[in-house]
Simulated scan of single mutants.
Amino acid sequence: MPPAISVVSPSQGPTTGGTPVTLIGSGLIGATAVRFGGTNAASYTVNSATQITAVTPAGSAGSVPVTVVSPTGTSNAVTFTYVAAAVPVVGTVSPSDGPTSGGTSVTITGNGFTGTTAVRFGGTNAASYTVNSATQITAVTPAGAPGATAVTVTTPGGTSALSPHGYFFYAAPPVLTSGDPGLGPASGGTVVTLLGRDLLNAGAVRFGTTNAASFTVDSANKITATAPAGAGTSEITVTTPGGTSNPVPFSYVAAPSLTELVPDHGPTHAATVTLTGLHLSTASAVKFSGVAAGFTVVSDTQATATVPAGAAGPVPVTVTTAGGTSNSLTYTRLAPPGL
């Protein structure tokens, strides 16, 4: 008896061929050919007397009879329908930017993704991809050069056309060259100017592991950031879609304090006093009732200052450093004795 076929599954596939199908029937042992219309299957395997798996050859859109040939004759025909595959369309790519080193997981949305055989970023294949559905693909970007690159999807229906939103932007890694000033009070609040390159689209500025209190991207070469509270030496970094920059140093300075003035009184004309306290090494000003005085830093705990001339009476004395302004101590100017 000739072989018989009752089922072909699936019963349709693209005109490009390559669809694996299962034929169910009887008397299939010894099959010498499986034909789709007048064309032999691309390949086939006789699994048992009741089952053959075959791969469709290319064909024209429409229905063709599927038959099995064996030494005992040719089977009845079952119908397989060739369907013209649609050209895929890329709608959006999200996220749309990432580092030139690659490795960004992106979601591609569109349609016609069934049977995808390639996802490319420019002329480079994706590092990997997964077809989630006919309308969505998850792909991992390969390494690329800075700039925009078109994302395309290839299926048996062809390769997608360029889409206005179907681009991925490779961002160069940010680089910092300086941060000024390089120190500030432990309480935070110092406005630091960061200079470098490829700083656009910065998503974070960090002082060590702490986010800046605020920051503004002024240009591709400049960011203005406000330091958070901190202690010790901290490394400032900038993170953009291109990655995280090299660090530049920032030192937190403890607030100064004054414990003693020697002497704590003197004439109404200029005089010299010694100030003793803590954290005085970065002193930028010594003031007597708000009037700046000449001064010399001797050590982190001592400075000398020239008291400016002034009217008799007590005046507050403060020291300002990178850590802030100290508490005040009182210096008293004494009027000269009357005649």
Rank of each mutant, 00 (worst) to 15 (best):
A134K: 03
Q12E: 15
P174L: 03
V307A: 03
G230K: 02
T92Q: 11
V66H: 04
P263Q: 13
A311I: 08
A126Q: 10
L199K: 03
V153C: 11
V217W: 00
G112L: 03
V319Y: 04
G294A: 15
S101P: 03
L195H: 14
G18T: 12
G203W: 07
V217R: 01
P228C: 02
G313T: 08
A42E: 14
T107A: 12
S105P: 00
V66F: 08
A311D: 13
V7I: 12
G266F: 03
A312P: 02
S70K: 06
G290N: 08
V89Q: 14
R35D: 12
S9E: 14
V66W: 03
T237C: 05
N125H: 01
I223A: 08
A31G: 13
L275M: 05
G184H: 00
Y252G: 00
P65R: 04
G30A: 08
V191S: 14
G243P: 02
A41I: 12
P316D: 13
T268C: 08
A220I: 00
F36T: 06
A49K: 06
Y252C: 04
N221S: 14
Y331K: 11
H265V: 04
A255S: 15
T259L: 06
G62M: 07
T304E: 08
P71L: 06
T190V: 02
G27Y: 10
P14Y: 06
P181Q: 08
Q12C: 08
G266Y: 00
A148W: 08
I223D: 05
F250Y: 09
G122C: 05
T240D: 04
T276E: 05
P174Q: 02
F288M: 11
A49V: 03
L195G: 14
V8E: 04
S160H: 13
F121W: 09
G182S: 15
P314S: 15
T107W: 12
V273G: 07
R333D: 06
T209S: 14
K222V: 04
G62V: 06
V89F: 15
V7D: 09
N246L: 02
A283D: 03
Y82N: 06
G310R: 05
R197G: 15
L162A: 14
A283R: 09
M1C: 05
T138F: 10
P181H: 03
A172T: 10
V297C: 11
A49M: 02
G179I: 01
T210S: 11
A86P: 07
G91N: 15
V106F: 15
L162H: 13
V319N: 02
D218K: 04
T325K: 07
Q302S: 07
L162Q: 13
V297S: 09
A58K: 13
F295V: 08
A292N: 14
T32W: 09
V297G: 11
S48A: 15
T50D: 13
G294N: 15
H265N: 13
D300R: 12
A322P: 00
A204R: 01
V315E: 14
P174T: 05
T16C: 03
T149Q: 07
D198A: 05
N246R: 01
S94C: 04
T19H: 02
S63W: 02
A202D: 00
N327D: 13
P71S: 14
T114H: 01
V34R: 08
V7N: 10
G189P: 01
L162E: 11
S26C: 05
G91L: 07
I29A: 12
R333W: 04
R206H: 12
A229C: 03
G182E: 11
V21T: 13
A270G: 00
